[in-house]
């Protein structure tokens, strides 16, 4: 049940804004270097504050980008989360509700 998965950041990042095309980051926790564009950076910043579920994250993205609910495609967010998880930057913990 993906709705009850909560995402959290596992990375310990050093960040460089190399130019307007994006960021390059170094994750001290894994020793990996990543090139990230705006959406993954935004997701990391939102998760850095607190753990969020996918739907909470979607709402937070819409709010920070000044968009109406439903304007941000869910699959874009899902893909970004999958990419960040594969890069070992975030992890999900599944909570089972009663």
């Amino acid at each position: 049940m993906s709705q009850s998965a909560r995402w959290s950041v596992t990375a310990d990042l050093v960040q460089k804004a190399v130019d307007e095309d994006g960021f390059v980051v170094f994750d001290r926790a894994s020793g990996l270097t990543h090139f990230l564009s705006d959406m993954p950076i935004l997701v990391l910043e939102l998760l850095a504050g607190s753990d969020l579920s996918t739907s909470e994250l979607l709402a937070a993205i819409e709010q920070s980008a000044g968009l109406a609910p439903g304007e941000v495609p869910e699959d874009v967010v899902a893909q970004t989360l999958a990419d960040l998880e594969k890069a070992e930057l975030i992890t999900s913990v599944v909570h089972h509700s009663d």
């Binding site: 596992t10 001290r28 926790a29 894994s30 020793g31 070992e88 992890t91 913990v93």
Partner: peptide
């Protein structure tokens, strides 16, 4: 330092796989 970081990383990933 490199192998130390990789070892801790590997442990983290093992624990995630076994969670």
């Amino acid at each position: 330092r490199y192998v130390q970081i990789q070892a801790v990383r590997e442990l983290r990933l093992v624990l995630q796989a076994l969670q």
